[in-house]
């Protein structure tokens, strides 16, 4: 889904386990949507077990045809969808599971290995330490220790991301640098909202607009990402133009609908 960063961080040979969700924020579920990711899914799951040992892991096998489910390490729960639903349907299955099992935090992370497990704790820590309901891991925000962005995309991709970023900013007033990032963490309120309704196609930008309109707080935190090495991208290059048009249309349409109850209205 994501293009390789210019300076990908090498995998840590002996990673140090991170503390559980910073001072025990509650039950934490890591949702990994996977479509034909048999080559990378085992490494992703094992890395997460090392870096977030207390979090539960759930793999969503989105109708894979390459026996992805057989590559998942043992004792890892798998939801096997009967057929391919796409990223939106797969993610919503994970959020339904999280809602049914009363998880306090859900972290979504790609099954292709682009989202390093050692970055996951940043999202959870930020979620628990801020008043945010959704935290987005951004490739474009500079790290705390330098001012350089983690990732500079190719010109055509940058243009597409820029269009969506501008549109989201115009429609919400939020300056979200990485609207298309699928590296996200959310709290129980958002889990319930997503379990109730979730966009089907290219859901990431839509979610920002709809959550904002429903009164949820959305923040970002800088993360580094690795280049995709296996599997299939969910947005091939030739579909890029369609992606921009579809997302633009969907965002404008979203101004007229409210799939989730307003969070502020529900508060005492």
């Amino acid at each position: 889904m994501h293009k390789p960063p210019n300076n990908p961080s090498p995998p840590t040979p002996h990673p140090t386990p991170q503390p559980k969700c910073s001072e025990d924020p509650g039950k934490c579920l890591i949702i990994i949507p996977a479509y034909n990711e048999s080559a990378s899914i085992a490494q992703v799951v094992n890395d997460l077990r090392t870096h977030l040992p207390h979090a539960d892991i759930l793999v969503i096998d989105d109708g894979s045809t390459d026996n992805t489910h057989k590559a998942v390490p043992s004792h890892t729960p798998i939801l096997r969808l009967p057929f391919n639903l796409g990223i939106g349907g797969a993610m919503q299955a994970g959020y339904r599971y999280a809602s049914i099992h009363n998880y306090d935090i859900a972290l979504q992370i790609d099954g292709d290995g682009q989202h390093p497990a050692d970055q996951a704790h940043k999202l959870i820590t930020k979620l628990t330490e801020s008043n945010a309901d959704l935290i987005i891991g951004s490739r474009f925000l500079p790290n705390d220790n330098d001012n350089d962005p983690n990732y500079t995309p190719p010109a055509t991709r940058a243009a597409g991301i820029g269009v969506i970023r501008t549109l989201v900013r115009l429609l919400t007033g939020l300056h979200i640098t990485d609207c298309t990032s699928g590296f996200r963490a959310c709290n129980r309120d958002v889990i319930k909202a997503f379990a109730h309704w979730y966009p089907e196609d290219y859901p990431e930008p839509e979610v920002i607009l709809l959550l904002h309109r429903a009164g949820f707080n959305i923040h970002e935190t800088p993360v580094t990402m690795r280049p995709r090495t296996t599997g299939q991208t969910s947005i091939p290059f030739l579909k890029g133009v369609f992606y921009i048009l579809k997302v633009t249309f969907a965002l404008l349409l979203d101004l007229s609908r409210s799939p989730w109850p307003n969070k502020k209205a529900n508060q005492p």
Binding site: I78, L79, R80, L81, P82, L85, G89, A93, R96, I100
Partner: peptide, 20 residues
């Protein structure tokens, strides 16, 4: 879509591994 999601969750709950 909703039906497929519920099927997969129920199958997981029942310990079934292969989708219908």
């Amino acid at each position: 879509t909703t039906l497929a999601q519920h099927v997969s969750i129920l199958m997981h709950k029942q310990g079934l591994t292969d989708p219908p």
